[in-house]
């Protein structure tokens, strides 16, 4: 690891200023991703601006039931919050399905959103990778990609976004509050992350130096009827193979409204808008759920080794919806 300067400012404006003042500086949350990447030699920031003091670690419940979550809130605390568990069970479940207890105690909301892909080549500086080392190529395409994307990838990069929490936040249409050089602005998920196109090194729409200060979850009463189902190779402490966050609003025998997002299938947490559209107004029945899943999957272009993800997504979406509506 290269020597670096460590700072821990007390407020967001100072953090922004410190980052802008030092080329090669990066924000530090819980460090569970960034420090690993520094140790591996993938990233080498010269200055770390620790933002765990500058960013709030508070969770506020709004009168309408929405939530305002400080960017410095630890994953474990967010998962344990009574309002999250009651009103947004998919979010609590997504958080708890991620990493380990120790890591969730350290990891912050902002850091979780901005964690980098787990593609093995990305993490190995001795190998090419367009995302980590732009212009060097993408060996995953012909190499190991069992757990990489089936949707939304480009010729430049076929990686997936690894976060579980972000999948739930994408389904919930969370609004990310950012402090930028020109002042504050907001981005509504799924708009935070960007598809790789020909610039896979840019994971999000944020500009360098932008600081996430909070994540807001707009009220969504029917999200009380939601769940997160994560499929993984190991029973715990494993990144997702495929996951689904789903919420449904039932009315009589039909689906009035729904939210569906997928993890482990794309370079971004994937909002399944086609499936949602298919489902709105559809009768509550397994056949509707299948049609919805298939509608989303028509765009899927699996790679040589990950074709199984198509069937897996279909099964998991259908099962999550059946579980939610109480049909077995």
């Amino acid at each position: 690891m290269r020597p670096f300067v460590y700072r821990r400012p007390g407020d967001a404006r100072t953090a922004l200023a410190e980052l802008a003042a030092e080329p090669g500086a990066m924000y530090l949350g819980g460090g569970t991703n960034l420090v690993d990447l520094m140790r591996l030699g993938v990233l080498a920031p010269r200055t770390l601006v620790d933002v765990t003091r500058a960013c709030s670690d508070a969770i506020e419940v709004r009168p309408d039931g929405g939530l305002w979550i400080g960017a410095g809130v630890r994953n474990a605390d967010l998962a344990a919050h009574p309002a999250v568990r009651r009103r947004y069970p998919m979010l609590a479940q997504a958080l708890l399905s991620g990493a380990s207890g120790q890591i969730r105690n350290m990891a912050t909301v902002a850091g979780n959103l901005l964690q980098r892909t787990r593609c093995a080549y990305f993490q190995d500086p001795s190998k090419p990778c367009n995302k980590a080392r732009p212009g060097t190529g993408c060996p995953a395409r012909a190499g190991d990609h069992r757990n990489l994307a089936i949707l939304g990838y480009s010729d430049f990069c076929v990686a997936t976004h690894p976060s579980d929490m972000a999948v739930a936040l994408t389904a919930l249409g969370a609004v990310v509050h950012v402090e930028g050089a020109a002042g504050p602005y907001t981005v509504r998920m799924p708009g935070l992350h960007r598809l790789p196109g020909d610039e896979p090194e840019r994971d999000t729409v944020l500009e360098p130096g932008d600081l996430i200060i909070a994540v807001e979850i707009p009220a969504l009463p029917y999200a009380a009827c939601s769940r997160y189902r994560k499929v993984r190779d190991r029973a715990s402490f494993a990144f997702t193979v495929v996951s689904v966050a789903a919420a449904v609003d039932k009315s009589g025998g039909t689906i009035r409204d729904c939210r569906i997002a997928l993890g482990g299938v794309a370079p971004v947490p994937w909002r399944a808008e086609r499936a949602e559209a298919e489902l709105r107004g559809a009768p509550i029945a397994e056949a509707s759920f299948r049609r919805a899943a298939d509608a989303e999957l028509t765009a899927a272009r699996p790679l040589t080794e990950n074709g199984f993800k198509v069937a897996l997504v279909r099964n998991v979406v259908v099962r999550a919806l059946l579980d939610l509506v109480g049909v077995s």
Binding site: R118, A120, D233, R234, A235, S236, F237, A238, F239
Partner: peptide, 11 residues
């Protein structure tokens, strides 16, 4: 150990 899976307690 994140990529090479050995059984965790839950397994």
């Amino acid at each position: 150990l994140a990529q090479y899976h050995v059984a965790a307690c839950a397994d």
